[in-house]
Amino acid sequence: MTTIEEPEVRAALPRLNEPAPAFEAVTTHGKLRLADFEGSWLILFSHPADFTPVCTTEFIAFAEIYPELQKRGCELIGLSIDSLYSHIAWVRNIEEKAGVKIPYPVIADLDRKVATAYGMVMAGESKTEASRCVFVIDPKGILRAMIYYPLSVGRNMDEFVRLIDALKTGDEHHVATPANWRPGDKVVLPAPNTTELAEERAGEGLECIDWYLCKKSL
């Protein structure tokens, strides 16, 4: 007798450069909507569970970069599939034990609506917890970057600040940023898309490895 397996239902992942999935969610700062962040950059990040070691180090680290993000016009919001009271107890515990006040809101996503809309639960890792996901949403509500980390690896905060800097620089100057770019480094010009432009590019006095890879200072 053959066994008919139930098809696994896989949540669709959001797509880059499309509107980020809208939400209204209960958070440690009250009921918030994605639209409340319109006009700001937003980093939406998920963590597997409250009162766990790696997540606690990350929450503290996110609190530490929050002032740098605010300087860049970027807000932060966390999420896990935990209750509001668990979140409140945890952020109070972090303040009491580590002396760090968590300044950003945290979504209590017990019904998984937000986690599902953003594809945060990776069933291969855990069916009950969100993975360590990071979504960067621009001031118009467009999803601009997504990064997924496994449960066992804490995230590198410098990268998120660098990512915001890179996205803002790209938008402002219509350029791209090379590997390991930092503010002040040269940026990459879009590659010419015709032979005529390729020839013209060669004569522009830029720092070029070849016609398709040219950098300039801003």
């Binding site: 700062h29 009250g30 009921k31 909507r33 409340d36 700001s40």
Partner: peptide
């Protein structure tokens, strides 16, 4: 107060 919180609170 951050704008996102103001928007949420004004709604309330």
């Amino acid at each position: 107060i951050p704008l996102y919180r103001v928007r949420s609170s004004l709604r309330q």
